[in-house]
């Protein structure tokens, strides 16, 4: 057995860290931008809600469920042609972002819908009774009231994305997951595996603690 931690290329590891953070940041931003309106639409069109539309809701729910039913590893492969069409390549950080967003946005949208459902019904009715438009209801009441829940949803999604980025390594995305697969698994370099897992753990911890702190800060319940 090889001595541990002697053959590690720290420059590789540093680059992998940067790749992971870029994928995470880019994918999280787009996931929120796409998933938030989708979650709001799911909520508003739901049964007995403000803008209840049975068929729109059923159609949105079907798309979301379909995307959530497909295992991410399959989604990565199926998405390749679309990814090439969208960003010109299916490789590297840029190539990983479209499948990551398509995988995470439906998940985030469901969490958004759940967070919005937690908003007190009297509060929603009170806002309507003030003569608010649906847009004002969303911007002035639903989003501020659901903010702690929305931050918790973002934290959960970010952590899910960390493990998605690791899987994206399989199709040549780069990052810590890719390193773990190529060195740790395919070349039996257990030490590389340990270092990457440790780094991923640190990343998850940072996300969770920061998320929890933020929730506490904005919550006035």
């Amino acid at each position: 057995m090889m001595p541990l931690f002697t053959h590690i290329d720290w420059a590789d590891i540093a680059q992998a860290c940067i790749d992971t953070l870029e994928m995470l940041g880019g994918a999280l931003l787009l996931t929120v931008l796409l998933g938030l309106p989708l979650g709001i639409a799911l909520f508003l069109t739901g049964p007995r809600q403000v803008w209840s539309r049975r068929f729109v809701h059923a159609a949105l729910a079907l798309v979301v469920n379909l995307l959530r039913a497909v295992p991410f590893i399959i989604l990565l492969i199926v998405m390749i042609p679309l990814t090439v069409l969208l960003v010109g390549t299916s490789l590297g950080v840029i190539g990983a972002i479209p499948p990551l967003v398509v995988g995470a946005a439906p998940f985030f949208a469901r969490l958004v819908e759940t967070a919005l459902r937690e908003v007190d019904r009297d509060t929603i009715e009170a806002t309507q009774a003030m003569g608010a438009t649906t847009t004002q209801l969303v911007s002035r009441t639903l989003l501020p009231e659901a903010l702690p829940g929305l931050i918790a949803a973002t934290t959960l999604t970010a952590i899910a994305l960390v493990s998605f980025t690791a899987m994206a390594g399989v199709v040549g995305a780069g990052g810590l997951g890719d390193l773990a697969i190529r060195f740790g698994y395919q070349r039996f370099q257990t030490d590389v595996m340990i270092v990457t897992v440790a780094l991923l753990l640190i990343l998850v911890q940072i996300l969770q603690i920061a998320g929890d702190r933020l929730v506490r800060r904005v919550s006035h319940r």
Partner: peptide, 29 residues
């Protein structure tokens, strides 16, 4: 609805806003 206002059993206040901000909400709307 601006001429016919409503008060609720469970108050329906925004927990994320102060007293002042809650009272200001209909005017901002």
């Amino acid at each position: 609805r601006r001429r016919v206002a409503m008060v609720f059993q469970n108050f329906g206040l925004l927990s994320s806003r102060t007293v002042e901000e809650n009272v200001a909400l209909p005017l901002r709307i």
